[in-house]
Design a protein around this nucleic acid. Structure first.
Lengths: 325, 325
DNA sequence: GTGAAAGCGCTAACAA
DNA sequence: TTGTTAGCGCTTTCAC
């Protein structure tokens, strides 16, 4: 916490009361121009920085939001947090970020940390546990983004989600259109995402007159440690000529395995686009998620809820765009 | 800012004074076991979250650090901030991040924001302007990481930097060892980085008995908008058979241009490693920066400086590792 | 082992 | 247009 100069020092130096300094610094019209000007100068000369903590505690608002994500190193979340920060900034809020690494304990302690810092609201990418968010959050507004909590009659929070079913269906249909006849799936360990993407996958198969086959529906571990082996299993043993991969971290493991496998005609598709996919020798069909809109919408809803706590929660679905290379 | 339940509520419910609650919650030994236990329970039942703002203002410390980086979307900074956050967390500090987009005004306002939030210290990747950091920071401890400010007799701050000269020299030497005879450079727009990397580049040429040629020393714009054209200029017009690229964002533009150029035997090298370079058809020689150590060292120095303001600043150089593919 | 009271830096009535 | 005062939620002497 910085050394020192407080409003009192400025007041003293300017020969006015603290109240007047406060008014001058917030450009209140109720202070004379000269006085105001003089105070500004003195403040700046003294290197005065208003203490936002004191201010927040007084006005009961921090104009700060909390953001809970699994891991900033995951490219999807890198982009999502930047989008959220930009949107928040436009709305006049700062954001504090917490990485959970999909760990429920870290998520809970991160939430507590944010609440102790008195954030005005939080945006959560749920780690998907049985966490009782309402109990932790109390009256603090929240919105879930990208993933919903698995509560049965879900809590009174907004949800801003991608249409995973539609997105996956489109990709898998595209793989089939490109000639794949037997499309396997390596699904995500994140249950919310996984179940929706599995549905989309199965719908696409059914729509093409293909019977889903459980033998080629695999699920990655959280750390993806089994993905390379699954890739071999699906592409070699099960002779899949198409493969849908549920997220970008799994895709990375798959790409690492492919050169060993000699499957030049594989039709490969996955959720989450990354710009370096352009550079791959192997074409990939992906779903580009509407990240900027996700962030903007989440902030819009959260700010609305902060300003009007009685606002009823909604579930908003945004469409993903298919990209073929 | 969350609704409500304060230490006063807990005190009332427990039939004790606020002071006792405060002691109980901070596990002071000066409160009876039963009392303490009872208070803990009541607090938890009431959903009490201590107000960290009030606490910070009272104890004059926020155990929060500020981090100023150009852009979290740049993979190097994504990793750096995660490393810094992890190291900070281990040391008992939270961190608030600000993106500057290499914009001096944003850097200055971001710094002010952090100071108003009363951070105990800041870590800065300098945008490289003539900013008078000492004037803005006042007594707040700071350490520069990755890039130093261009002040002549530099301010009393620690600097944790990568050995750009050594790193670049190693890469360019490797390109030559692999057969390149005419190695061009596309340098960074960031002046600190650029000048050091240029030195390393020239040293490698000289060491190999090659005369540096200004005609093949180019500099990218901040937004890299001229990189593709420069790539053509160097590889086609100037007939370079080797190319050193000063950072990962420039590399991305170069990679986008290469397929147009038909230069299969190009020896390509660049600073900043990315794991997806493994998947490229084109091999690349890179310098892997010691990001985790960079973050840990920066935090170590900053925390030391917070605890002992009289600590003398140092400049620490960490070596980069060359990776050939 | 516990309570009363002061005060961190600020803003917002209320007065003047 | 400016000053006085109270108080936000917390910790910390200083009493008892």
């Amino acid at each position: 916490m910085t050394g020192k100069v407080t409003i009192k020092d400025v007041a003293k130096a300017a020969g006015v009361s603290e109240a007047t300094v406060s008014r001058a610094l917030s450009h209140s019209p109720r202070v004379k121009r000269d006085t105001s000007q003089k105070i500004q100068n003195i403040a700046s000369n003294l290197g005065y920085h208003p203490n936002d903590l004191a201010r927040s505690i007084r006005v009961q608002q921090t104009h700060t939001l909390g953001l809970i994500i699994p891991d900033i190193l995951n490219a999807f979340f890198t982009h999502l947090s930047r989008a959220i920060e930009d949107a928040a900034s436009r709305a006049g809020y700062d954001v504090i970020l917490v990485n959970t690494d999909e760990n429920l304990a870290k998520e809970a302690s991160g939430l507590n940390l944010l609440l102790e810092k008195q954030v005005d609201g939080v945006i959560i990418t749920s780690a998907g546990g049985p966490t009782d968010y309402a109990a932790i959050l109390g009256p603090t507004p929240a919105v879930f983004v990208d993933r919903m909590p698995p509560t049965p009659n879900h809590a009174p929070y907004d949800r801003v989600l991608v249409d995973n079913v539609q997105g996956t269906r489109a990709i898998v249909s595209q793989l089939i259109a490109q000639g794949a006849t037997r499309v396997g799936i390596i699904n995500s360990a994140v249950s919310f995402t996984a179940s929706e993407r599995l549905t989309g996958y199965q719908e696409a198969l059914t729509a093409a007159g293909i019977e889903p086959d459980e033998a080629i529906e695999a699920t990655a571990r959280t750390d993806n440690s089994n993905v390379q082996q699954m890739t071999r299993q699906l592409l070699i043993n099960q002779k899949c000529d198409g493969l849908f991969v549920a997220d970008n971290t799994i895709m990375q493991s798959v790409l690492r395995k492919l050169p060993d496998l000699d499957v030049p005609h594989l039709q490969l598709g996955g959720f989450d686009d990354q710009d370096w996919f352009d550079f791959l020798p192997q074409p990939i069909v992906t779903a580009r998620q509407p990240i900027a809109e996700l962030g903007q919408t989440a902030i819009d809803r959260l700010v609305a809820k902060i300003e009007d706590p009685d606002l009823l929660p909604e579930e908003i679905r945004l469409a993903a765009t298919t990209i073929s290379r």
